[in-house]
Amino acid sequence: MSSNSPSSPLRVLVVIASSRPGRLAPAVAEWFVETTRRETERERMVVDVVDLGALALPFLDELEHPSTGVYAHEHTRAWSRRVADADAFVVVTPEYNYGMPAVLKNALDYLYEEWAWKPVAFVSYGNTSAGTRSVQMTKQVVTTLRMMPIGATVALRIGDSIEDGRVSERPMLGRAARQVVVELARVARALRPLHLAPATDGTTPGPVDGLSLSRVGEGDDVSELLVLQRSCWVEEAHANDTLDLAPLHETLADVQAWAKTWTVWAVRRHGRLVGAVRARAVGSTWEIGRLMVAPDQAGNGIGSWLLAVAEQHAPEEATTVALFTGKRSRRNIALYERAGFHLTAAPTTPDDAVLLTKSVAATTLA
């Protein structure tokens, strides 16, 4: 996830979307980054470049559907973290047989939530059509992933714009590239609240419409919280093949008791309680727990959003963020790993659970 602060610099991922030997894409990407450097600095953008040829993702090899966020392979988790960290994208792509390169389609298909609610610009190149047919094909895919293609583009005809393997310095191309950056920044800032965690409590834009975030008082929301908790932990019971889970057996008095000793955030959607998370300081550790989202709201990004809310409230003296989940809770583990947590060995961890930790410094930069 990109920075939790709406005022932090925008993070732009420039994607080199070709792996063919002798490709022009790296030279085109280098030209774009250098030509727009002044504009990216003015717009407070941090530019990261990823070369899909060097990234070398295998042909999609995950068993679970990308929308689940359950990733078995480290190459997928690493790609997920990089994409999730971005606020916007620039795709530098050639055109192959009226379409996009297979390596680009594969990279897009690996993920789902990580792309959502972010703008994407295109810098294309080719012969007769200057790569524009590749862009049109790619737009169909990215809009399905809930991305927003911007209107400004750069289209380079190889015969007119490439000399000795490099982009020719032409004023018209430079103006087009700079316009891409200006428009991308404007749209990225408008969309940012849809994929960032809120900075304060209260009614706040979130990953879906109608969300309202508030802290839970001793007597507030507790009955609903108990019902939500039990409905959420049924799936955990199935995943871990046990009913011996505390959240399934706690009474109203139990929930009232821990609500007094933990900071608890509840999120409502159009008035209905759909999620919650709790956190507390234990020495220098900020402990997060009971992250829950109503089963019918799963997959909308609310869990990641709530996790970020809890992380951002870590006290200054905290050095580590920690949480536990079931050993077989693959979806939970995948969500936490996408957020930068790592499985950590600890002698006090229950036999049926795993501990995941993250440094507070990583949380601040995440």
Rank of each mutant, 00 (worst) to 15 (best):
L156A: 02
D352F: 05
A361C: 07
E43P: 06
A257S: 13
A190S: 13
Y71W: 13
S3H: 13
T357H: 05
T35M: 04
T128S: 13
E235L: 08
S284E: 15
S212F: 05
V167R: 02
S329P: 08
L184C: 04
Y110W: 15
N97I: 06
A361S: 14
A246W: 05
V180M: 00
E62F: 04
V142P: 03
G303W: 01
W115I: 11
V321F: 04
V360H: 12
T344F: 07
A322Y: 06
V187T: 09
S161T: 12
Y110E: 13
W31H: 11
A177G: 01
S18C: 06
V50T: 15
S8N: 06
Y112G: 00
P66H: 09
R81D: 10
D220W: 02
P149W: 07
V267S: 06
R215L: 10
L108T: 12
A259W: 03
G303C: 03
P350A: 05
M172F: 11
V120A: 00
A54L: 14
T251A: 06
S284T: 15
N332C: 11
P9S: 01
V33P: 00
H238Y: 11
A281Y: 02
D221H: 12
A294G: 02
V120P: 02
A121C: 03
S359T: 15
R81K: 11
P66M: 10
L243K: 09
